[in-house]
Design a protein around this nucleic acid. Structure first.
Length: 667
RNA sequence: GGCUGCGUAGCUCAGCUGGUUAGAGCACAGCAUUCAUAAUGCUGAAGUCGUUGGUUCGAGUCCAACCGCAGCUACCA
């Protein structure tokens, strides 16, 4: 039996849990649940990352203390994640006595062994707020291209990277004051001492190959010393032997993994911290992180552990980012979806399943396509997997008093299902969950084919074929049970419903290898509900509404409004319909030939249910003339005709009043 | 700019160390079916595998350049 400690990256204590956090915690949780099903001893800890200037400033703005603010957020975060069935053994905070103790002890060990040094650093200082300014709190002119309004680390316009002290006309974002250059002693961790160790370590399978490649960039370029101190005022832990020097948040954040685990050990009988963390521990430590923080987890963190004589991570599992419908999550688009908003309208397992279908052991970004989300859940889970149980259960109850057959009707099908558990276990272990899901739905397909081929509904009243009907439907139920086992790491609540239906104890992985025979099952009740696209739209609308309220408070950035310039980019024109035709093979589209005055073009419009083509010819419509052409199944659409209404039969095309001519700009 | 990764049917993706007519699911069309949460089955249509050049008897698969997308570029959490 393996002993495994698992962590997800620590959410910041400065905002709600959103889709990005959910992705990481759900994929970690799937792995953890799988390990537990395999009989391994697996602990999963996390915490809020509480420290930093941002926390301090946010608390100040709210008129409260950082401690009060982070504690209420911690509770909210833990609750949100719990409601998505993410099963942490401990959800702690980096602002904890354990963490302070570990961080200081690690630092003292590093300092005693000559792994640290101090040096003078010149930094911008806000004389009004009386604090040193991190790069994100300074703006000025880019030293290379001179562009205004650039942050202190790199230029959005020309891509240059530079030091904040190089900015022209710098100003503090906190006070608008002009920062002064001040020098201060900083404490450094001498990362370069660990270069050889890191070269070896990053080349092992402790990290994915593409991560190894990426890290080689830093390793061959020469590692710089890592500045681990910040000047006060700062919300964090003070560095031993100093006044007003604090550990940089990234110094104590990963130590927070240890602290959270220590806190768990202290209240768990028989669980020993040192068993997992001493240098020669044979337990495993797995970190799940996003690709934005690989340098912290694959360079700094292993080096710090090594230098402090702790064990290094067994594996760092790096994943990509979440996008929604192809673009980054955005508050104004309504795709910066918070956990709480989602839960008001949708089932957490819908999201768990959809994420699972997208999971692979690589660092590619994952795109959530809202239509795809609805379809996959409805057709895969409800239409295929759960449907097997649903269609078989009735026969077993009506004809056989709810008792399953005494033997397996089709050994070949059962073997395929049961043999899959070995490969599926490998896929879960590797994190190739999407592939596992595809195999599972493939088995469901095969089983639906099998049931259709034997047509139990035809033979159920034929006394001679009663045994066959019972056999077929019993095997269907058994396959469903095996699939519920395979899906249990992803869908724990659905699995629990299945257990109740099947009248069995908690499903274990090896149950997929043992059929239920001569067993009485309970009546079937829907185990899983389908998604209504309208509920997805409600989540989007609620998120947009939130963004708008936030904008009223601080109309800083990310406004849901568009500027006149942005509106001006959209070229709306009056067009005359020259021809309109049905499209062969399409039941929603009409192909329109439009006259835009100086040009003609073809546009496909989804208005067939509402309009007869012949009534459209000669009428004027409003068209988006500079919309990127879109290739569709029946041809390329070169624009979009504007219409109002929810769709279907309720579509109403816009028209200009009499006198408008084709080609006229709509403004 | 440098680096990492990605670019295969309308959409999501498989295609391992290069080898016969490029696969699956969703969506779409037709047919069948009615046991099932309008679920299921069968059939079909759909791709110059980002572009160009190269290596090879043979390349989606290897190499180069280019184009596009995403991310990183160390005190932003």
């Amino acid at each position: 039996m393996r002993r495994i400690l698992v962590t997800s990256a620590l959410p910041n204590a400065n905002g709600a849990i959103h889709l990005g956090h959910l992705f990481e915690h759900i994929l970690t949780d799937i792995w953890v649940r799988f390990q537990r099903m395999m009989g391994n001893e697996c602990y999963y800890v996390c915490a809020d990352d509480a420290h930093g200037t941002a926390t301090m400033l946010a608390a100040e703005r709210l008129g409260t203390t950082p401690e009060a603010m982070i504690e209420s957020l911690r509770e909210e975060h833990a609750d949100d994640l719990c409601r998505f069935h993410v099963e942490h053994d401990n959800y702690y905070s980096t602002h904890s006595p354990e963490n302070e103790q570990f961080t200081r002890a690690i630092y003292e060990r590093l300092a005693a062994d000559g792994r640290t040094f101090t040096a003078d650093v010149e930094q911008l200082y806000d004389p009004e707020r009386e604090l040193f300014l991190a790069d994100r709190f300074v703006k000025g002119n880019c030293p290379r291209c001179g562009h205004d309004d650039q942050y202190g680390d790199n230029c959005q316009e020309c891509g240059a990277t530079y030091d904040a002290t190089e900015l022209g006309n710098p100003r503090s974002l906190l006070s608008d004051a002009t920062p002064e250059l001040r020098s201060s002693d900083h404490y450094f961790f001498d990362l370069a001492q660990f270069t050889d160790f890191l070269k070896d370590w990053t080349a092992t399978d402790a990290v994915q190959p593409e991560v190894t490649n990426k890290l080689a960039e830093w390793l061959t370029g020469g590692l710089k010393a890592w500045d681990i101190s910040r000047d006060g005022p700062y919300f964090g832990f003070t560095i031993p032997g100093t006044k007003e020097k604090y550990f940089y948040v990234w110094m104590d954040a990963p130590v927070g993994y240890m602290a959270s685990f220590k806190n768990l050990c202290d209240r768990t009988e028989g669980l020993d911290f040192e068993d997992f963390w001493r240098a020669d521990s044979d337990a495993e430590v797995h970190h799940f992180i996003g690709k934005d923080i690989i340098n912290f987890h694959c360079l700094f963190w292993p080096a710090v552990l090594r230098g402090a004589d702790y064990r290094t991570p067994t594996k760092v599992h790096t994943h990509g980012f979440i996008t929604v419908d192809g673009v980054q999550m955005s508050k104004s688009r309504g795709t910066f979806i918070n956990a709480g908003t989602y839960l008001e309208h949708l089932d957490p397992e819908h999201l768990r399943y959809y994420f699972a279908t997208k999971l692979a052991a690589n660092t590619d970004d994952v795109d959530i396509q809202l239509d795809d989300f609805v379809q996959r859940v409805n057709s895969d889970l409800v239409g295929k997997v759960v449907n097997i149980a649903s269609r078989c259960a009735g026969f077993i109850h009506r004809g056989f008093d709810g008792v399953l057959a005494a033997s397996v009707h089709d050994e070949q099908l059962w073997a395929a299902v049961t043999d899959a558990r070995r490969e599926l276990a490998e896929l879960y272990e590797r994190g190739d969950v999407g592939r596992a899901v595809r195999q599972i739905t493939g088995l469901a397909d095969r089983t639906n084919q099998y049931i259709a081929a034997h047509e139990p509904w035809k033979h159920v009243n034929d006394p001679e074929r009663r045994d066959e009907v019972q056999g077929v439907c019993s095997l269907g139920i058994n396959v469903f049970r095996a699939l519920a086992v395979y899906l249990k790491p992803i869908l724990p609540a659905m699995a629990a419903n299945a257990e109740a239906f099947l009248n069995i104890e908690s499903l274990a992985w090896e149950d997929a290898g043992r059929p239920l025979v001569g067993h009485e099952i309970n009546r079937f009740k829907p185990l899983f509900t389908r998604i209504d696209r309208k509920d997805v739209d409600k989540v989007i609308a609620a998120t947009v509404a939130q963004a708008e309220t936030e904008n009223e408070d601080e109309s800083d950035e990310g406004s849901a409004q568009v500027s006149i310039d942005e509106f001006g980019k959209i070229d709306l024109r009056v067009a005359k319909v020259l021809a309109a035709n049905f499209v062969d093979g399409a039941d929603k589209l009409i192909e329109l030939r439009l006259d835009l005055g100086d040009s003609q073009r073809t546009v496909f419009a989804g208005v067939r249910e509402a309009y007869d083509p012949s009534t459209l010819v000669e009428r004027h419509v409003v068209v988006v003339a500079n919309l990127a052409p879109r290739k569709m199944r029946f041809g390329t659409s070169e624009g979009m005709v504007l219409a109002a209404g929810p769709g279907g039969e309720d579509i109403f095309l816009l028209s200009p009043d009499a006198g408008a001519k084709p080609g006229m700009r709509v403004t």
